[in-house]
Amino acid sequence: MKKSTSILLAIALMFSLTFVSCDAINNANSTQKGAGIGVAGGALIGGLIGGNITGALIGAAVGGAAGGIIGNSMDKQADKIEEVLPGAEVKRVGEGIQVIFDDKSGVTFATNKADLTDTAEKNLDAIAEVFLEFPDTNLLIEGHTDDTGNADYNMTLSKKRAQSVVSYLESKGVAGNRFDVTAYGETRPRFDNSTSDGRSKNRRVEIGVSANEDMIEDAKAQAN
């Protein structure tokens, strides 16, 4: 029985990955992103990707007509973020948004530091205005470091960096109950830690934007 169950799960996994690949999700338009991923399929792929913003956003997908409505709202919000933060990487993922700050957008950190620079505060001022304009969202804040120093120390430092961003956004009026902070330390580099430029870019925060319960319920009501 256990062997048969394992075979069935493997088959289900294969078909899920075949029909809903990550590339397809990232390349889809707003309606496809919202309506094309059901709750079950989104949760499966989100779990496979693992504990990061991309996985969380895909796993949180509502799907159906309501998902399409949410996706349309997220398109508008993503456009606003790109407008006010031209240096940041803004990606539509599932029914949500992923914002990646690096040295181009100015929200990075000095070695062993969690303090926000003047440039970082200026850019956070800009994105805070967008978050205030679109209040029915949850905000996942991830903190990261380069691989310099002790891994345990870097984990703590990455949390401090994420919390610095949260505290600053709260000071600009963004409600504290919208935030969920995750620290990854040095475990999820985007750039080459063997170069000084790569290490600088890895000392960063990332933000995920997803629909909160109010937005989901409103989208379901519109869909019906």
Rank of each mutant, 00 (worst) to 15 (best):
D180N: 15
E170W: 05
L57I: 11
T5I: 09
D136P: 11
N154D: 08
E133R: 00
G34P: 00
F179I: 06
I69L: 10
T5P: 00
V205E: 01
T156I: 06
V84S: 01
D146L: 04
A78C: 04
K172N: 15
K122I: 14
G36W: 05
A221I: 14
F101D: 00
G59S: 07
E83C: 09
N26P: 04
G198H: 13
G176D: 09
D102C: 08
D197Y: 15
K33H: 09
R199I: 03
V62G: 01
D23S: 15
M74H: 07
P135C: 05
E142Q: 08
A60M: 07
E213C: 01
M74R: 03
G64I: 01
F191Q: 09
P86V: 04
K113H: 10
I97P: 00
D147F: 08
T54I: 15
E121I: 10
Y184W: 13
G34I: 07
V90K: 01
A28E: 01
A110M: 13
R161Y: 15
H144I: 02
T137W: 01
M1L: 13
N26K: 08
K91V: 12
L85E: 10
G94C: 06
F191G: 00
F191T: 05
T108K: 09
E95K: 01
N26Y: 07
T156C: 07
A183K: 03
S167R: 02
I100W: 02
V107Q: 04
E83H: 14
E213W: 04
N193S: 14
G176S: 15
M155F: 15
F131H: 10
V166N: 03
E121M: 15
V166L: 09
S200W: 06
A151K: 08
E206S: 09
V20L: 14
L85N: 03
N193E: 13
G106K: 11
S167E: 13
V84T: 05
A114D: 12
L124P: 03
A65R: 00
V209N: 00
R203W: 04
A40F: 14
A56D: 03
R92I: 03
G106A: 14
A28T: 00
G198P: 00
N202A: 13
R188A: 12
T182Q: 08
N123W: 03
G143A: 02
T148M: 07
G67H: 06
D147T: 02
T18D: 06
P189F: 05
T111W: 08
G51S: 11
G47Q: 12
V174F: 02
Y168E: 09
T18Y: 12
N112R: 10
A183M: 02
E83L: 12
M215R: 11
D102S: 07
I69N: 01
Y153T: 09
D192S: 11
S167C: 07
I45P: 02
R190M: 08
G63E: 09
D75Q: 05
G36M: 09
I37W: 02
G143V: 06
I25Q: 01
R178I: 07
N177Y: 15
K160F: 08
L169N: 02
A219L: 07
K201I: 09
Y168H: 11
I81E: 03
K33A: 13
E83G: 03
L8N: 12
A40H: 01
